[in-house]
Design a protein around this nucleic acid. Structure first.
Lengths: 122, 122
DNA sequence: CCGTATCCTTTTTGATACTG
DNA sequence: CAGTATCAAAAAGGATACGG
């Protein structure tokens, strides 16, 4: 054993933490946001998220697929067509992310005020 | 104007996104988790979070204070004593973070299975 | 069209020694 | 005790050119 403390749910190495880090990721949140409105193609995602590089897009999509939160469906056509879609598990994230977004919008003004006061009191 | 699209709530430069990134931060979540149980001193936080460097701890605390999510109270004693505590605004984060944690715990098993399958299908 | 490979820059983080 | 300063290390991110 490394520690003899009872149990610390806030430890940095708590297994669930990895998952939270993943879905809390900037691009991940945005991508899931877009997919919440329905299936989308690679290009759609690139356009709607905006500012994401192809590298980060495919990287993030791959991670989400690996975790079973989205599915990738490639059609054998020319030109190629690939569609991404939330899985059932992925859809369970919607209320959470919506809650986060709502919180952010509600508290944005107060936070801004607090920052000004803090910075002003230099 | 840079774009003539109607409005894209999933754009990377959405103002609220900055806030979400902040509270989604690894150390931030852990610190708020500890403070959810009540006020704590610098040392308490360092111990309970575990693995955090003094630099990251004070840096994160400062950011949270700046945003008005925690308050710092220093007592003029020797040895010095400083106490951190969630503000009312900070406490509104609790249900959100709890929701995240619950989600992570619930979906961890499924995610793990999905990862194995994905990696195995190399 | 859907990505991958590469290279390079920027940010973030960690370790540690030291101060009020 | 509660931090700050400093330096090095690592990771993340972006741009872009190219392949299937």
């Amino acid at each position: 054993m490394t520690e003899d403390l009872p149990f610390n749910p806030y430890a940095a190495d708590c297994p669930s933490r990895g998952l939270v880090d993943r879905i809390g990721d900037k691009w991940t949140i945005l991508i899931i946001g877009v997919l919440s409105e329905g299936p989308a193609r690679y290009r759609d995602l690139a356009d709607q998220v905006g500012g994401i590089s192809p590298k980060m897009l495919s990287q993030t999509l791959k991670a989400l697929e690996r975790d079973g939160l989205i599915v990738r469906q490639a059609f054998a056509e020319v030109p190629p067509r690939v569609q991404y879609e939330l899985t059932e598990a992925g859809r369970t994230l919607q209320p959470l992310l919506l809650g986060l977004e709502t919180w952010a919008r509600e508290h944005m003004p107060g936070v801004l005020v607090s920052r000004e006061r803090y910075d002003g009191a230099a």
